[in-house]
Design a protein around this nucleic acid. Sequence first.
DNA 1: ATGGTGGTCCAACCA
Length: 255
Amino acid sequence: MKVASWNINSLKVRLQQVLDWLESRSPDVLALQEIKQVTEDFPADAFREAGYEALASGQRSYNGVATVSRAPLLDPVTDIEGFPDPQRRILATTSHGVRIINVYVPNGQSLGSDKYEYKLQWLAAAREYVAAELQRHERLLVLGDFNIAPDDRDVYDPVAYGEDIHTSGPEREGLRALMALGLTDVFRSFPQPEKSFSWWDYRRGRFRRNAGLRIDLILASEALAKACTGCRIDREPRGWERPSDHAPVIAEFDL
DNA sequence: ATGGTGGTCCAACCA
């Protein structure tokens, strides 16, 4: 099973890029974040014609997640129980015998802001939801845009960047607490090129200078982490005309 | 310290 995650920063703008990418990489599952469209506008037909089932949880202008799969998408859940939230940031489905929890963790804006507090609360609530899901599903993935660089290897210049949004102690602790449920960041299960990143700000030539962060992650339960045979970041689409600011992450599992 | 770019959708917000 080949699984991918990609923050697409508007599916309206980049639907053709996603379809081209599906055709060339041929994943079994693709988790999309920041589709930035309401669920009713989600182009399920275009995915069906490409041979994929698709489900979305969208909203106007901001956020929105969708999951695309070769196999049916079962038991969809679009909210964290006990954490009422109008922002569409999570979509859990079951496909290929795997519980797939697609997340768009809040950005958090700046340390100490209201959005930062919301980010930490969202993470804590997501952790409780994932804990419950792990009781029900041995094979489970949490993948998406976490808006957190797990450690200094995931930051282009950790000294210059310092303790800021995406790298702060409380954010990293929130991610660590989620992973402590028994989830593995499978990218780090394999040797990787130095300075591997998944997001580069559009401003100041950050992609050209490879001044990025690795904030898009695929976390696997123990049973799946053991079955993982590889994980890589596909930088190519970031270099395309009118790209998303994120690159896709791909993991393969021998099930 | 500021502003640089890009998306949504037309003023301002979000990243």
